[in-house]
Design a protein around this nucleic acid. Structure first.
Lengths: 271, 271
DNA sequence: CGTGGGATTGACACGACTCAACCCCGGTGG
DNA sequence: CCACCGGGGTTGAGTCGTGTCAATCCCACG
């Protein structure tokens, strides 16, 4: 669940300077070890400064030049919609920094969170004519944007890219099936525990996991992801807190004090 | 495992035909890529006699010759395992006739059905080194089998095939997300109703839907798919029966007498 | 200082699970 | 030929986990 680009940064790709910065006060601060960008031998993209791989992991330098001349980097404030369910699927995005949630709307107005996305993840790639879900930012975010016709051109020129898309899609599918298991068969506390574990895994994928994790989603978001109510999520988290398993030093952060207890709970169907 | 009634070797595989989704529970159809060369109008594959598209929809005659010389057709009895979770993902299968279920095993021994597959569906394609789930036949089935190295060769020779795989993967992903919504947010009866609706849609995709549908899965299978218990599934179905919405003329068949009532229930979160 | 959104906590109801009996039917063997 | 068996399905009674509704708290923000 919470799929992610495998790991391994690699030259980033794309990203020409900011362009449609909806929000001027861009993200100058970031928790990452932002070692000087552009250094030889580093994993940092010399164009946009990100450590993240996104789409372009398998590409060589020429391809990167190519793709970066076609894409744009933008910064958006928290809660902006990257795209909406039903919009023509005309662009593909890579999340450079920040967090997003993907949601589907139900006829009765409720929402189901289909997944969360983290720095390095690709968002909105589909072969369907329209996006099948909303993508909303949970935090201020830096995003790399590529128009679909450009992407199709790149796909034609760099077959490796097509393979990469397929890999990403397979990973995402596997993660969603995993999530199906969680939602379908586990108790409320086990689901919340599984969610916390997946947060840790996502953080690890982005680099050495800090002791205190970002958790920018609200209880309601988590509930909509896990098929629970926000009250139940809240009760589970306070239960964990009382057992000394977690700590929430500030709003939107968690520390896992007893990861093995949490994972054990996540594995079993109950207890 | 896999193997049993040996029989007509090779010469199958191909089969161009009506667009067929990988996942039966997927409503989305792809508009593009109808560029399949060759004689349009033929619904039946001249090689294996199947009406089903499987992988090969976008291929031309030469490619079909090529692929059909690399693949084999086998027939297997009900309840055989096509492959198991964790097996090296060395083959790809297309279901020519019959029904299958895909399941994941939980640590506590329970299973989650991640999907059912019908005639025309591709099974077991993944870029992962191992299959992420079991594939078990629900009925006797005819299957087209292709070794992974052969497939990779074909992918290299026919780039359109790679695109096709991606399309199939996207459809499957969309369908799984849909299922996530069903399992996460709907009442028991609504889930069962949604399942019945998806059965109808799957049948339609295979051709004009007969009044009486095949439903080879047991109550337990359905329950494991919907995140319910078999008793709850049974109760829901008898409730539908008593309301005159469905009929089960014989074991493993259903007739939907009031499809609109069933779909209405499937849409709402409750009632 | 007031406002509002998010989070927590409690009381209560109800839907789905659990456990268990029973039915139906096909297969098997005495 | 029939009794037995086992697997799938149905039905019922009782329990318990979550959902629901509502009050309260907390804190960031204007």
């Amino acid at each position: 669940m919470l799929r992610l680009v495998p790991d391994n940064p690699a030259r980033l790709a794309s990203c020409r300077g900011p362009e449609t910065a909806v929000n001027p006060f861009d993200a100058a601060h970031l928790p990452h070890d932002s070692t000087a960008p552009g250094q030889a031998g580093t994993q940092v993209c010399d164009r946009c400064g990100s450590r993240i791989a996104g789409l372009c992991k398998p590409l060589d330098a020429a391809a990167l030049d190519d793709i970066s001349s076609e894409s744009q980097q933008v910064t958006l404030p928290a809660h902006s919609m990257v795209f909406r369910e039903g919009d023509p699927a005309g662009k593909v995005f890579t999340l450079i920094e920040g967090f997003a949630k993907l949601t589907r709307l139900l006829p009765d107005g409720k929402q189901q969170v289909v997944g969360f996305r983290f720095a390095g993840d690709v968002i909105g790639y589909t072969t369907l004519p329209r996006y099948p879900f909303d993508a909303e930012l949970l935090t201020d975010a830096k995003i790399c944007r590529l128009e679909r016709p450009q992407l199709d051109g790149l796909l034609r020129r760099y077959p490796k890219l097509e393979r990469r898309m397929l890999d990403l899609c397979v990973q995402e599918l596997t993660a969603t099936q995993e999530q199906l298991v969680t939602v379908g068969r586990r108790s409320a506390e086990a689901r919340v525990a599984a969610f916390l574990v997946s947060l840790v895994e996502a953080a690890r994928r982005r680099g050495p996991a800090p002791r205190v994790l970002e958790m920018p989603m609200t209880r309601a978001d988590i509930a909509d992801f896990l098929g629970l109510t926000l009250e139940t999520v809240s009760r589970s988290l306070t239960a964990f807190r009382k057992r000394g398993w977690i700590r929430e030093p500030v709003h939107h952060k968690v520390e896992l004090l007893n990861l093995s207890a949490v994972s054990a709970l996540a594995e079993g169907t109950n207890d």
